[in-house]
Design a protein around this nucleic acid. Structure first.
Lengths: 203, 203
DNA sequence: TATTATAGGAAACGATCATTTCCTTTTGCA
DNA sequence: TGCAAAAGGAAATGATCGTTTCCTATAATA
């Protein structure tokens, strides 16, 4: 009956913050300092919430982290989708995607880092459930790249001799590698040149 | 007078463990679980040392971590040096180096991960001194790759039109990207194919 | 206006953290 | 054989951790 746009509000006092806004702050904090490097006390100031509110909303610290990780993955996938919509060949889409990563990996955004990579580095060995989540998302990203390469091979913008699955892995490695470079500082101009060089893989 | 090979031992009870052996265990532990994910209690069991011995040898947890990080960097640089010595063109050296990374990034070794990348992801924002150390080591690695590319351009094994500094950054990104792929599981055969594809950047 | 349901938030909880203390053990040397 | 010096190791320290408790505040509803 009640859709999300004319909701009858849940009983009781309504939440006084916007979940998504707080998750964005959590993404920033966890990306820079990691899960274990962020205490609840840190989160109290970073999110502007007391422990009570955090635990009511997400059960525990790990629950908040998972919510932030999921939102991060969603946001990034959505940004890529929009990017791809405005490019009109397999190669143009791959170029747009790589240039997007050049921007993400440069300057301040680069130093903030990628929450997925931070999580893989910090928690893959310690938390099998999170590791499985990361593996699944990587598989999706790899498949997406593979489709774009095949699209490029069909429209003639990508060389036909390339093995799509292998090039997809390689491009994914380049994307993630740029993110690591960004953690210790990368100039946008350098990352752009790097991407232009990487595009030779499609010729 | 006394060289390191016929030392008059330091006064007092001699250390009952080999520093390097313990550091290797610390490298393993920190690579998998990170600095903040490893407690002194964890180290007691992982290293087989009590807290007293750890603190006498390295002052504190961070001191042990820095010693492990330095040893890790040294070991890896040494392995690469040996690899390069047995290759005889710029391209062959770059190929050997990339194939070395394919091995490091695959299977169990890949899941263990790279301590440098783990540290960049976890501590670059929180510890400026460590961040500077990482930036310096990255600069060295980049310069080494750059020299190998230039060597290849001179011996004709690498295309002369490539900008060595840019290709160096790109190869470094590929190496580090492979390491991230390895954290969520990578087959050696796939990483090998990835490297062969990447070598097209040198044509 | 009273009730019910949930959020906000301060304070307290036990557990675990990194580190230190202090005593024992092992070495070289007088 | 006793002393100085440094390592090994158990136990204790204070701080901080994640989490819970409990009370207040704010909403819809009867």
């Amino acid at each position: 009956m009640n859709g999300p746009f004319h909701p009858s509000p849940a009983p009781g006092r309504p939440r006084q913050f916007v979940l998504e806004d707080v998750l964005d702050k959590a993404i920033q904090r966890f990306s820079e300092y990691g899960f274990n490097g962020t205490s609840i006390s840190d989160l109290n100031s970073a999110l502007g919430l007391t422990s009570g509110s955090i635990y009511k909303a997400w059960n525990d610290k790990r629950g908040l982290f998972l919510a932030a990780l999921n939102r991060y993955m969603d946001l990034r996938a959505q940004a890529i989708s929009e990017l791809l919509a405005s490019a009109h060949s397999g190669r143009a889409k791959l170029e747009a995607m790589l240039m997007h990563y050049a921007r993400l990996s440069s300057e301040d955004a680069g130093r903030t880092g990628c929450l997925v990579i931070e999580t893989a580095a910090e928690l893959a060995a310690a938390d099998p459930e999170i590791a499985a989540r990361l593996a699944a998302q990587r598989q999706q990203r790899e498949a997406q790249l593979c489709r774009l390469i095949e699209e490029g091979q069909q429209d003639g913008s990508v060389r036909k001799e390339a093995d799509p699955a292998t090039v997809a892995k390689l491009l994914l490695a380049i994307q993630q590698g740029m993110r690591i470079l960004g953690k210790t500082g990368a100039a946008y101009a350098d990352m752009q040149k790097l991407v232009l060089e990487a595009l030779r893989l499609l010729d």
